[in-house]
Design a protein around this nucleic acid. Structure first.
Lengths: 110, 110
DNA sequence: CTGCTTGCCTAGACTGTCAATATGAGATTT
DNA sequence: AAATCTCATATTGACAGTCTAGGCAAGCAG
């Protein structure tokens, strides 16, 4: 039945992660939960996408990890946004709005 | 200078092609030109993306091809939207607006 | 102890895009 | 008419990001 389309638009995950770290550090699953919750269940982030993305972002110097303990008393890796990460978030957000404007122009064309 | 990010959002090309065939058949390069023009140069479609996409869409039965002659008197393959293609266009458009709504909710979150 | 949950992590496959290149044919220039 | 330019289709190889489908460790509940 319903052939589900992917829940994420390819290439937006990095931006979403950076955004969800904007105000406070979070651990991996916490980030995924937040994205799902804020989007009101429209977006879901699979773990197989999440962790590679986190390494990517860390390797770029946009986030920084630190071991800590979660609310549930499990050890967890907390990520926080770096200064470069904030700049990157702005850049990606601008790129996103630019591209979506282009797409929406095409979709709106008669 | 600006490290250019990709000009397309991954996974939207099919939708854009279908949309640009909505009113009249076009040939391959004509489709690419149209997308670029309507988006006011924000989006660009490379040939290495275009033709595979066209085959994909044709294989799915969403477009149908026919040989013809272009305005410049060159032979060209004209694609036209099928009934199934119109349905698909609606479905993809809805999916797009749904996903972007989710992303925008995250981006708008405080 | 057993089983459930949380949280991290990895391997493999797949898909869509791009850069680069090739080919053919009509148009243009000389 | 020969050479060159442009239009248009087409293919190839590489690559990046996502997903499915697992596995591992440790805390909690029964």
């Amino acid at each position: 039945m319903g052939k589900e389309k992917p829940d994420l638009v390819y290439g937006t995950l990095d931006m979403l992660i950076l955004k969800s770290l904007q105000h406070e550090p979070r651990h991996g699953l916490g980030i995924a939960d937040r994205i799902q919750q804020i989007s009101r269940d429209i977006l879901r982030v699979e773990q197989g996408s999440l962790y590679p993305a986190l390494y990517r972002l860390e390797a770029q110097g946009w986030i920084k990890a630190e071991w800590g303990v979660s609310d549930n008393n499990r050890k967890a890796r907390y990520y926080k946004l770096t200064a470069a990460g904030r700049k990157q978030l702005v850049a990606e957000t601008e790129h996103w709005s630019r591209i979506t404007m282009g797409i929406n122009r095409v979709l709106a064309s008669t």
